[in-house]
Amino acid sequence: MNFTITKVQLFLMLFFRSTGIIFIGYPETIILAGGRDAWIIFFVGSLIVFFQLWIYEKLYKYFELGKFTAWIYIFIWIIVLIGSIIYMQYNLNIWVQQNTPHTISLVLMLLISFYISVSRPSTIINLPVFIIPFIFIFIIYLLFSIPELSLNHLFPIGTSTGGQWMKGTMVAMAAFTGLEGYLVLRKYVLPEDKISFKDILTFQLSITLFIGFLVIVTKMYFATDALPYVTEPILYILKSIEVTFVKRLDIFFFFLWLGWSIISFGLIVFNIRIVYFKQKRKHKIWPMAVLHLIVFIGSVGIINIQVMEFIRNHFHYFYIPTTFILPFIIMLFNRRRKSKCAEL
């Protein structure tokens, strides 16, 4: 595939890939995993990810996927796609469309993604730009909940156990799932667009502040024992805010989240597209059609509470193997091989 991107586009894509899909429910997961110190654990996890990104930048040249590793990644991303679409569809059924059959809304969402996936790369590269203004609107409306927030919920600090810190850190890092996209997309950044330490710091700060804000607002809003009763705390908070121009703020932002998630979904498909079409392929459209058909078949029959809970309770286990272990094995292996070739 021939395309180039700027570093701003790279970071925008990463931001939307990581934050999309999970952000309405993520705060609950980390608070339940990390306990009272969850918000501190999140910032610690983010710091670890920052150093990981910095190492990525140093070693990205060695991230070259062979046939086998490419298929491993494609397989993992398909699983992530299936999990994501189930999560989106389940919430759609809960919050807005109780009676619309799964198949219809699934087909609709997958059709949009399919259209994006067969369009020029510039379509998905530029799509995140449309969401940017809504991020600020979303944050402003969440700030309406300030009178109901209690600072007391954040304290005392240092009460989480070792186990909570371990699990909490894993969940904290999982907020950045999809970071392997950095390695996939980094090579397409214009050579004159150098990525500095400051650029990575700015990106990591902005994503940390966004998710950290959601975690802190949720922690300050809900009593600890009330949180397990709620599935998507951010939507509950929005549902409790009264405004004059719209009766239900949660529904308004639910559709924003859905659009955000479809873009995030499209970015995962874009990763698959880059890796799959790295080798010259005869057909351009059929593989994408097959991919979407696999996602449809893989999800349509299992949209239920058991699968949803499984996804909620296990999504954080994806981060370490896909974003940490596998990339570092690939990069270190290739680096070693290249240095041996140079010696010969």
Binding site: F222, A223, D225, A226
Partner: peptide, 17 residues
Amino acid sequence: PKTNLEIAANLMFSEGV
């Protein structure tokens, strides 16, 4: 104090208030 369905349900689970 300002109360609604959300606040009421939330407070019923809080030990400190």
